[in-house]
C-alpha cells in the first residue's frame, strides 16, 4: 500500500516539528510549574498567618483561579487584557504567565493544608526553645509539611501538563497545534493521518505524565507506611 497513514509522521520534517512542539509544551509547563510552585509556597505560608485581610485577599485569589475555567483565563489574558490595559506579551509567554498564576493558586492551598496539618504541639515545642517565626517555619513546619505536599504537587504537575493542550486556542505553537497543521497539510495524501498524529501525541503525553503519577503514588504509599509503621 502506497500510503499507510503512519508514514505521515516521517514525511518531510513532520516528526522533528512535532518534537519541537512538544518542547514548547514542556517548556511552558516546566517554567510555569517552577515559578508557580515557588510563588505558591510563599502564598501558602502567608495564608497560615493570623492577618485576616491578607488571608482574605489570598483566598479570593485562589478561588478566582480555581473557579474560572483555564480556557476562560487564557482568553481573558490573551484577548481582553491587551485591549483594555495595553498589556502585550507573545502568546507563549502569556500562557506561561497564566499557568504560573494558576499553579501558584493551587499550590498555595496545598502548602497551607500541609502546614496546618502539622500538629499544634510541634509549633509550641518549637516556640518553647525560643525559635522565632521564620526559624519555626524553616526548621520545623515546612520540612514536615513537605512530605505531605509532594504527592499533591506532582498530581498538580500532571494536570498542568495535560492542560497545556488548551494552548492551541491562543495560537501557541505547541505539540497539538503543530499536529493539527500536519494533519491538515497532509489530508489528501494521508487521509488516516489524524489517527497517527494524535496517537503519537497521546503517547507523548502519556510518557511524560504516567511516570509522574506513578511517582506520586509511590511517595504517598511510602509516607503512609512511615506514618503508620
Amino acid at each position: 500500500m502506497a500510503h499507510s497513514g503512519i508514514s505521515v509522521l516521517l514525511e518531510g520534517t513532520n516528526f522533528t516539528r512535532l518534537l519541537g512542539g512538544l518542547w514548547v509544551t514542556v517548556k511552558i509547563a516546566a517554567i510555569a510549574l517552577i515559578v508557580g510552585i515557588v510563588l505558591g509556597i510563599i502564598l501558602g505560608v502567608l495564608r497560615t498567618f493570623k492577618n485576616r485581610p491578607l488571608r482574605l485577599i489570598l483566598r479570593l485569589y485562589l478561588e478566582f483561579f480555581r473557579i474560572v475555567p483555564t480556557v476562560v483565563l487564557l482568553f481573558l489574558f490573551y484577548y481582553i487584557l491587551p485591549r483594555q490595559m495595553n498589556f502585550n506579551l507573545p502568546a507563549d509567554q502569556l500562557a506561561t504567565l497564566v499557568f504560573a498564576l494558576w499553579v501558584a493558586a493551587e499550590m498555595s492551598d496545598i502548602v497551607r493544608g500541609a502546614l496546618i496539618s502539622v500538629p499544634k504541639h510541634q509549633r509550641e515545642s518549637g516556640m518553647a526553645i525560643g525559635l522565632n517565626r521564620y526559624q519555626l517555619y524553616r526548621y520545623v513546619l515546612i520540612p514536615q509539611a513537605i512530605s505531605l505536599e509532594i504527592p499533591a504537587t506532582i498530581n498538580l504537575a500532571t494536570r498542568v501538563i495535560k492542560t497545556t493542550s488548551l494552548l492551541m486556542l491562543i495560537s501557541v505553537m505547541d505539540v497539538i497545534n503543530i499536529g493539527q497543521q500536519i494533519i491538515e497539510a497532509n489530508n489528501h495524501s494521508h487521509p488516516t493521518g489524524v489517527f497517527w498524529v494524535y496517537g503519537l501525541i497521546f503517547l507523548f503525553y502519556f510518557l511524560i505524565d504516567y511516570p509522574l503519577s506513578w511517582w506520586a503514588k509511590r511517595l504517598e504509599k511510602k509516607r503512609l507506611e512511615r506514618a503508620n509503621g
Binding site: 500538629p119 504541639h121 510541634q122 509550641e124 515545642s125 518549637g126 518553647a128 526548621y139 520545623v140 520540612p143 514536615q144
Partner: peptide, 9 residues
C-alpha cells in the same frame, strides 16, 4: 510537654 513533641524531621 506531656506529648514530648520531638521534631520528627
Amino acid at each position: 510537654f506531656q506529648s514530648y513533641d520531638l521534631f520528627p524531621n
